[in-house]
Amino acid sequence: MIRTLVESAFQTGCLSVESEGLLHQVLATKCYQPEDLAAIAALYDAVRAGQIKREAPTELRMEFPLGYKSF
């Protein structure tokens, strides 16, 4: 599911509030694979570089497993 949500963000150039919420829920359940974390890292880098826009207000932050990175 994580990789599908990340792929959608890359295709549309936008990370919706709903997708970001789903990503957070899936990560919170700790039901992910190492490849999912790689996809999240790519998404994070794309958001930071401005390649993908977030719908969520910029003051909201999203924490990832093991303190990996946050938006």
Rank of each mutant, 00 (worst) to 15 (best):
K69R: 14
E59A: 11
L43T: 04
Q25M: 06
G50N: 07
P57Q: 13
Y32V: 04
I52D: 09
A38C: 13
A41L: 15
S16T: 15
L27H: 01
S8N: 11
C31M: 15
E18R: 06
G13C: 01
F64H: 12
L27W: 05
A39M: 02
M62S: 10
F71V: 00
A28C: 02
L43N: 03
S16R: 04
S70R: 14
Y32D: 05
S8Y: 00
C14H: 10
Y44Q: 12
A9R: 01
L27R: 01
S70K: 15
V17F: 03
G21P: 00
P65R: 06
Q51E: 15
A42M: 13
T29H: 07
I52R: 03
V6K: 02
L60M: 11
A46L: 08
C14N: 08
Q11C: 03
L37I: 15
I40N: 01
Q25N: 08
L37P: 03
R54P: 04
R3Y: 05
L15Y: 08
E18D: 10
A56W: 06
Y32G: 04
E20N: 04
E18Q: 10
Q33Y: 13
T4E: 11
M1S: 14
L43F: 08
E35D: 15
K53R: 15
A38S: 13
L60H: 09
P65Y: 02
E55H: 07
L66G: 12
E59I: 13
K69D: 06
L23E: 02
S19L: 01
E55C: 04
E20K: 00
Q33D: 15
L15V: 02
P65H: 11
Y44P: 02
F64R: 11
F71Y: 11
E20H: 02
E35W: 02
P65F: 09
E59P: 04
A49Y: 09
T29L: 07
V47H: 07
T12N: 08
Q33T: 15
L27P: 00
L5Q: 00
Q51D: 14
T29P: 00
A46I: 10
I2W: 05
A42E: 14
L37K: 13
R61A: 10
E55P: 02
V6R: 03
G50L: 03
T12A: 11
G13Q: 05
G13M: 01
L66P: 01
I2V: 09
G13Y: 05
D36N: 07
A49I: 11
T12P: 00
E7V: 00
E63Y: 08
F10Q: 04
S16N: 07
V26A: 02
G13S: 09
I40S: 02
F71S: 06
Q25S: 12
P34N: 11
T12Q: 14
R3S: 06
